[in-house]
Design a protein around this nucleic acid. Sequence first.
DNA 1: TTCGTCAAGTGACTCCAGGTCACTTGTTGA
DNA 2: TCAACAAGTGACCTGGAGTCACTTGACGAA
Lengths: 227, 227
Amino acid sequence: MVSNPAEKTRRALPQRARKDEDKEARRRLILDEALALYQSTSYADVKMADVAGRALLAKGTVFLYFPTKEALFLALLEDLLFAWFGRLESLLEQGDSPWTGPRLARTVAESLEGEEALTRLLALLQTVLEQNVTAEQLRPFKERLMAALLRGGALVEQRLPFLKEGDGPRFLLHLHALVMGLRQMADLAPVAREVLEQVPHLALLRVDFTAELTTALTTLLRGMESR
Amino acid sequence: MVSNPAEKTRRALPQRARKDEDKEARRRLILDEALALYQSTSYADVKMADVAGRALLAKGTVFLYFPTKEALFLALLEDLLFAWFGRLESLLEQGDSPWTGPRLARTVAESLEGEEALTRLLALLQTVLEQNVTAEQLRPFKERLMAALLRGGALVEQRLPFLKEGDGPRFLLHLHALVMGLRQMADLAPVAREVLEQVPHLALLRVDFTAELTTALTTLLRGMESR
DNA sequence: TTCGTCAAGTGACTCCAGGTCACTTGTTGA
DNA sequence: TCAACAAGTGACCTGGAGTCACTTGACGAA
């Protein structure tokens, strides 16, 4: 517990955030600290009190910015997800000649390397996050998701001329599914990791996320092409 | 709260389960009641005290059979998952001539209809269940999973002669991934359902589980065939 | 049939994390 | 300079997972 990185941000801010931009900065601070904790542990292990502590705020203050723990993590997921969507879009916009399926598969899979927090949160979305959140909090998320699916889907269709109308969004939907499942296989909880290391013949259950996602996506696109 | 269905089972048992078969029956009873509660709510909404109440047992007794809530649900998942694997295997063993990809895709997808509890639990496996469980509790599960993947994979390869060595287990792995993701899209939490119903242009986010899984699997298999 | 033994069963209790709210205090504009 | 008010605070409340000292039913030995 040495010099907290939040301290710098915290000092640069007034003690009370009255302007909207200050509020936004404080919101960001909380999200950043929550992310830092989540990256090194699990959802259940992140305590709201710890998030507050790291952000040099009182627990009650955190609840001023996020009504529930689930709402906080939904906001975090939203940040990470749409930041990634943005990066994916700019990758897909590079060059203008048609791509091959394998190239697109590789690009997408590699864009997700190091995005463990994002993909782990995705798996929590339906089973945990949507459980303690109001429709008002969820609607904007779904709206943005819809827009991103349509925009990203269009870009994919543009890159791969063999795709039919509607294949783009469907590809992204299947991508979403594969990411969740493969992340589950690839990044194991400490207990699970231990088990797989102890028992040699379980080695097949260990999965390389990027590699496996690349082959899955390639296969999927090849299937769409030869139809 | 009318006549509890557990009452019958409970009466047929002695007040103390001393023989192994009685213990097993009590264990089953607990799992059944937990499943019943889970099917109508969510993981977080199932309270251990309620499970105990429905099974006409004291809370402490439930913890005699399952050391943690997570362990209970891991056991439940294990039951449901391997029961389904069994059914899938017997479906795949019918007839002996080679199958087509679409037929296999349809068979698999339909075998999962009504298995909402199973697929929802799958999504909890890594993010929730493996978090509060010991290696000793997890190992048998992983061992059985490995065996089932190999056995089921072999059957799939046998049915589809165009598959290469190792494609079978890989197909099942991708199936696992797709099931998790599509279930997330298809069976929404009440709040999410509300949102999608309120906002018309989000209709595309509503997904028919079996239909979408069938097309995804068909595409995947077609991709494996045309390689 | 009786009864001592012991494991199965019990539920009041502890612990702990999310969430609340009456109170304190920094900020601002008059 | 200071009144007004919103941002911030943390002691407190709530509820659910998990514990454990105690109770009691089952069974085998006498």
